[in-house]
Design a protein around this nucleic acid. Structure first.
Lengths: 137, 137
DNA sequence: GCAACGCATGCAATCGTAGTGCATTATTTC
DNA sequence: GAAATAATGCACTACGATTGCATGCGTTGC
């Protein structure tokens, strides 16, 4: 359990009981989760507290927001090199149209994008939809 | 005005008064619009009717859905080669963090994406966030 | 040890968008 | 022109995001 606390403190997040529970939960996930997912899995937790917890995590570079086109915001743990100053999650997000799960594909990288003159890039979001490896079988 | 009707009929959409108004509005836009945008601009229109109108348009390949990470669905006219059988809007969508507008960049194209083994691609969504040409000045 | 402070938590409530059901109106077909 | 079909408008529901406020808890200074 000390390990969890350490992870929070490395990101300058005070390790409260709630936060440890949420971090522990996130570490166990294989796909990005919505607030509702968390709320259902972690009984006895208030939705708003979860909302603020992941918000804190996000602000400190521990989780990143995943937009998968469902209109529901999902969250997943960041790569270790993310900080409060900026996220570096330049990987592909994959939404499976069958199982409805959204996976981070951290081994992938986003190719160079050419923008028209005058456009200034700050962030890139690449979402691929299709069938995941498990559902394709 | 006959021109508008023709555009609808080419996509097998019956040209009603409402639909002509919506198409006319969409043709005048330089960025993707939300239902609320339409509702505000087109007075006297019911939100649900708009909702169903763009849904019809989408099903017939006249408009495509734009996901810009704001959680609000936006719509923009398709390229001419889209049909009811499939959209071919493989261009970049650009969300300006300053003016909050979302532009289609039809001249761009999405580079080849390498997915891990087992993943089956059906659709790609590439969203770039930053400053648009107008806001960068 | 305790008082004061700040931050975290939980509850209630609000807001905005998406979506459905149904009655009414318009349009097409014969 | 009447019947059938499709489109429209209104009422209402569902749900996620978000804020305000009161309470709880942990830390610090004395």
């Amino acid at each position: 359990m000390k390990e969890l606390e350490k992870q929070l403190q490395e990101k300058q997040i005070k390790p409260t009981a709630m936060r440890l529970v949420v971090l522990d939960y996130l570490l166990k996930q294989t796909s990005a989760v919505s607030l509702t997912d968390m709320e259902v899995s972690l009984k006895k937790t208030d939705r708003v507290t979860l909302y603020r917890t992941v918000k804190t995590f996000e602000e400190h570079g521990l989780v990143h927001r995943v937009e998968d086109g469902t209109g529901v915001t999902k969250f997943a743990l960041c790569q270790p090199d993310c900080t409060a100053n900026g996220h570096h999650d330049l990987h592909i997000h994959f939404y499976c149209t069958n199982c409805k799960e959204t996976h981070c594909l951290p081994r992938t990288h986003i190719p160079e994008i050419m923008l028209p003159d005058g456009y200034d890039r700050q962030e890139i979001n690449l979402l691929v939809k299709g069938l995941c490896a498990a559902c394709k079988k």
